[in-house]
């Protein structure tokens, strides 16, 4: 029943969204009347070209904005509920659940804001999805989830939801620094026959219309995002892939080292914004 109601809300929003007025760029986001979300703040010191950073929420129309203000209206919360069940369901050869090692999902508050982050034992930078799969394979004896597929995104959304309101705080120095540098290079590299970089659209042109799309800063504090366009949760790497494809370029794959590095860099461009995912976008 609840699922159906949410779906019809999503459909209605989509119908409205098409011609709806542009976002009120001064609106403030408070979720469930209690979680205050910082959607606009000073840019972190490592960003030369910009003084203010803004969540993609600010660039969406008011109908889409509103769907994120109450968990009952946010269609992504259905996936979060499913993930909550998975969290405490034992699986794999070890017959263990996430809860056996980590307690309640709420005990994981504070994890999402610092990802992607350096993993000392593995000697690499890891995204949250990589870390989840490490647990599945090595502690639970379960199959890893496919990158950016529904199961992985739902769990990532759950772990994001319990950190909402906390500031994004991705480390850019220390052993992960070279990965961060690689991500920065990818961000500014022009690709494809249209010869555009992430910065061409999301740094030089945010706030401008590109045909029917209102360009945001391409921040990822709201990921995974529920998109009205495809009515499901969308991962960071899949979003990157779509944007790179749109430059008529050969893309990288979700889960590739290049996208891990790019995610780390883009996440750090949001240092200071609140964790907002799972967000709603068009």
């Amino acid at each position: 029943m609840k699922a159906k109601l949410l779906q019809s809300i999503a459909a209605a929003a989509l119908a409205f969204g098409a011609g709806a007025a542009l976002a009120d760029e001064d609106a403030e986001l408070v979720i469930n009347g209690e979680i205050e979300i910082v959607t606009k703040t000073d840019a972190p010191a490592h960003m030369d070209g910009m003084s203010t950073i803004m969540s993609g929420w600010r660039f969406r129309d008011s109908t889409t904005q509103m769907m994120e203000m109450d968990d009952f209206d946010n269609p992504a919360m259905l996936a979060v509920e499913d993930a909550r069940e998975k969290w405490s369901t034992p699986v794999g050869s070890e017959d263990k659940s996430c809860a056996d090692c980590h307690g309640e999902p709420e005990d994981m508050a504070g994890v999402k804001p610092v990802y992607p982050k350096w993993n000392e034992d593995a000697g690499e930078v890891r995204t949250m999805q990589m870390q989840m799969n490490d647990c599945r394979e090595n502690r639970m004896g379960a199959e890893p989830w496919k990158y950016d597929a529904a199961d992985a995104l739902a769990m990532e959304a759950l772990l994001s939801s319990v950190s909402r309101g906390m500031p994004v705080d991705v480390a850019i120095d220390g052993p992960g620094q070279s990965t961060w540098e690689q991500g920065k290079e990818l961000y500014y590299a022009r690709t494809g026959q249209l010869d555009l970089s992430c910065a061409s659209c999301h740094e030089e042109n945010y706030g401008n219309m590109i045909r029917a799309d209102h360009l945001s800063q391409g921040q990822i504090n709201g990921f995974p995002t529920y998109r009205l366009k495809n009515t499901k949760l969308n991962g960071v790497h899949s979003r990157f892939k779509g944007c790179v494809r749109d430059t008529r370029a050969e893309t990288y794959s979700p889960g590739s080292p290049e996208f891990v590095a790019l995610e780390m860099y883009v996440a750090s461009r949001g240092n200071g914004l609140s964790v907002e995912g799972p967000a709603v976008r068009n």
Binding site: A189, G192, Q193, S200, C201, N205, R245, D246, R248, A249
Partner: peptide, 24 residues
């Protein structure tokens, strides 16, 4: 400039096959 070159066939980085996302 961000304006693409409309009559050019060389010198691209990671040229794709149209909008497929695959290599040209």
């Amino acid at each position: 400039t961000v304006m693409p070159a409309f009559y050019k066939t060389e010198g691209f980085n990671r040229l794709g096959d149209g909008f497929t996302g695959k290599a040209h």
